[in-house]
Design a protein around this nucleic acid. Structure first.
Lengths: 193, 193
DNA sequence: CGCGACGTTGATTTGCCTCAACGATTGTGG
DNA sequence: CCACAATCGTTGAGGCAAATCAACGTCGCG
């Protein structure tokens, strides 16, 4: 599994053996227990996080203490508070583990060094960011033009694997309804009497 | 104004005189009248669009014929249906002009050629895409955790210039309410009796 | 075992939508 | 340059999707 990240990168660009080692050398590995944080509101997001195993979530907490999930990240996904990472200022988002996870991370200074040593990485992260933009645009279509039932259906279609692993309340916090309402909705979908 | 795009690019990367000319040579210029389309549902988004003057919108039309605006693009902004552009398949979004506009566009094949000739452009578009990701993440915070009044306030704070130029119904379609409701909301904000 | 997290169910409320009607403004063809 | 239509914002009455609040059963876990 040591090569999981390199395989992912090589799906987008080609790296020499040497370059691969340079990338791996820049990564810090860490385990993260369920419910433990990578990032909390008020902190500066110092690193980009790559999920080797487990599941993370990126979310905000509103004035009433309710959580709203912006993105999940399962194995092979990158995740960060992009605003805070780019500007290196205090952010308003949280990242924590939904399951015990293994994370590899690169600090912003180290990424910038990698870009100098391996210009092809610019391409890799450009492609990732463009794919993320595409995903966010499509999610806004869903978010703005569908009701709760259809948003749930869209989520199931898009992330069939995640549905099985996620507690219901997190799905609710992602599609933008209360846990109570999602419960009633699902009940009704199963009993279409 | 011939250098508007190059100035924008040079805010992020350095380009030689020669490279600047190569970029400009790849751009197709066009004028677009108000309400005319750059892209319609079912078409493949062939190009990236750069707004030299005017305002565009990227939006979807739902099953009931209602429009939902994903993004505005004023002078100096790039805009495209990223999903369709990346995969070169038929998309579900529209792009049209809110005001008479001047657009410069690069086709996907030409961008890919530019990446080969001028690798630094990978960096430019990576930075743009990362900024877009940051903006979309923050908009989801607003969209998921705020009510209509607060989403309107957030929009005003983020795009103070746009508020003045946009018809009210487009702001409504962006923050996710009906024009009628936005009208009542604003009325109430001005008459806090 | 006992506690806290999670999902469920019901009663009630509310934020926003729907539909309809109406001025004001814009734009367009004669 | 006017007449007419179309677009836009406004206002009101009524309706619905989803939130709120509260109570309860279950389960996993320390």
């Amino acid at each position: 599994m040591e090569d999981f990240l390199l395989e992912h990168i090589r799906r987008h660009i080609t790296l020499t053996e040497e370059e691969g080692k340079t990338v791996l050398a820049a990564m810090r590995r860490r385990k993260l227990k369920k419910k433990h944080f990578l990032l909390q509101e008020g902190e500066v997001n110092q690193s980009s996080f790559f999920v080797v195993s487990g599941i993370l979530r990126l979310y905000s907490v509103d004035a009433n203490g309710f959580e709203h999930i912006i993105q999940f990240a399962a194995e092979g996904w990158w995740i960060s508070d992009m605003q805070s990472l780019l500007t290196q200022t205090a952010g308003n988002l949280y990242i924590d583990a939904i399951e015990d996870s293994e994370i590899w991370q690169v600090s912003k200074p180290d990424i910038d060094l990698l870009y100098q040593k391996i210009p092809a990485l610019e391409r890799y992260f450009r492609l990732l960011a463009e794919n993320a933009v595409a995903a966010y645009q499509q999610r806004f279509v869903s978010s703005l033009s569908q009701n709760a039932k259809d948003r749930y259906a869209s989520f199931c279609r898009l992330y069939p694997g995640l549905i099985l692993q996620l507690p219901q309340k997190h799905i609710a916090a992602y599609i933008g309804v209360t846990p109570e309402f999602l419960s009633k909705m699902l009940n009704q979908l199963n009993n279409p009497s």
